[in-house]
Design a protein around this nucleic acid. Structure first.
Lengths: 214, 214
DNA sequence: CGGTTGGTTGAGCTGTATCAAAAGATGTGG
DNA sequence: CCACATCTTTTGATACAGCTCAACCAACCG
């Protein structure tokens, strides 16, 4: 979690605009000219690429305080879309770059943030490679639970704002396999899917064991 | 590719030490106290984690100019090991952090570097999720070829300094599947594995088509 | 030349994708 | 507030790709 000094916060506020968007809005498309960097203030965003085969590969979900707008050669790498109604902070890329060049301490926070994301990305890449569908889904629920926990909410109760097919695209399974994997987690008494967008971890010990059994 | 001013280069040289290590040397282990950041000067390094199941997940291969030594809470995240005899530049983590806090322009180079790695990591995570073994291996060869190309060497001839089982651990296949996939690439006339550590792309057009067919 | 490590080939089994269809949610307008 | 239309999710049957186990081959080394 990044903490900023009040001065840093103020510098950022000065070059940022708040944006509210309804669910399913495309924020930007892959290959579009990258003019803005975003931070999630409220809600959930997904970042993905549609592959030639028709499959959609979901690179990452973005939650409160996450930054996004990664570009390469001035073009966005992924397409991003609001999963639910969202509020975003939008920064002009050039202004932000200028600010970072001047304020080494602020830039350092960004460096920490990106480094953290890199770690997470590598970790996910490793975990996602496990072969069993049930384990993959458990891992995903564990990731979401960790996020909830660090946001200070009571754990055990895990919000899943995204759809099953988003989950499928993220963990690299078919939609049907995700469904069967959830059924399996319920049958084994580890997780209860209380509604479409809410899971509850029932047997923490056994659940963690499954997650760790990579 | 990061380019540094001569002043920046000098600042870095002052806090760095050159280290030479024979092949198979463990540079640091997962969970060890993180005191140093490294840059590869010569050779290839692998970064991995051994999982409870006995599988080894290879997070990334590191080549010339790559930085490594990613830590979390003061502990290294992965284990790193020299694949071949290597020369490394070693920086004291605390000294480097101090330098970056003072020199925003230098820090910006690091930010760019880490951002680039993040992009690459996400891209790999997406590509690695394709299901067919032959396509995965082709993708891996393509990654190695891209690296060779950007290093200015003639393409088509792709050095693979790592072992087959390293490749297997990296692309998430069994050793046997990697072997079968290479046989398949040869049978289809796309790639010739000239020796254990050297591949040649024969039919560039068809090869690229396979790589892109995600 | 035996030993060791690294890689290839073969046979059978398991688990996930795929196709197809039913069942549940969600939202809209009357 | 209900009934319909649509979208999402679940369930079922089948095929196939890659894993596993096991044996074999080949390079490299003293």
């Amino acid at each position: 979690m990044i903490t900023l000094s009040s001065r840093q916060r103020e510098e950022l506020v000065q070059i940022s605009t708040e944006v509210r968007l309804p669910a399913r809005t495309i924020i930007y498309r892959e290959d579009a000219a990258a003019e803005w960097i975003y931070a999630v203030a409220v809600g959930t965003v997904k970042s993905y690429r549609d592959l030639p085969s028709g499959r959609r590969a979901l690179a990452i979900f973005l939650f409160v305080n996450d930054l996004f707008g990664l570009a390469e050669n001035g073009r966005y790498v992924n397409t991003t879309e609001a999963v639910v109604p969202v509020t975003l902070c939008r920064f002009s890329l050039s202004e932000l770059m200028g600010l970072l060049q001047q304020d080494a301490a602020l830039q350092f926070r960004f460096l920490e943030k990106v480094t953290h994301e890199l770690r997470e990305s590598q970790r996910r890449a490793i975990l996602i490679n496990r072969r069993d569908a049930t384990g993959r889904l458990a891992m995903f629920v564990a990731l979401m639970a960790a996020r909830t926990r660090q946001a200070g909410q009571p754990e055990g109760d895990v919000p899943l704002p995204m759809s099953r097919s988003d989950i499928a695209d993220f963990i690299g399974l078919s939609l049907e396999s995700v469904s069967r994997a959830s059924a399996d987690l319920e049958r084994r008494g580890l997780v209860k899917f209380e509604s479409r967008h809410r899971a509850r971890i029932l047997d923490r010990a056994e659940f963690d064991k499954l997650v760790a059994a990579v």
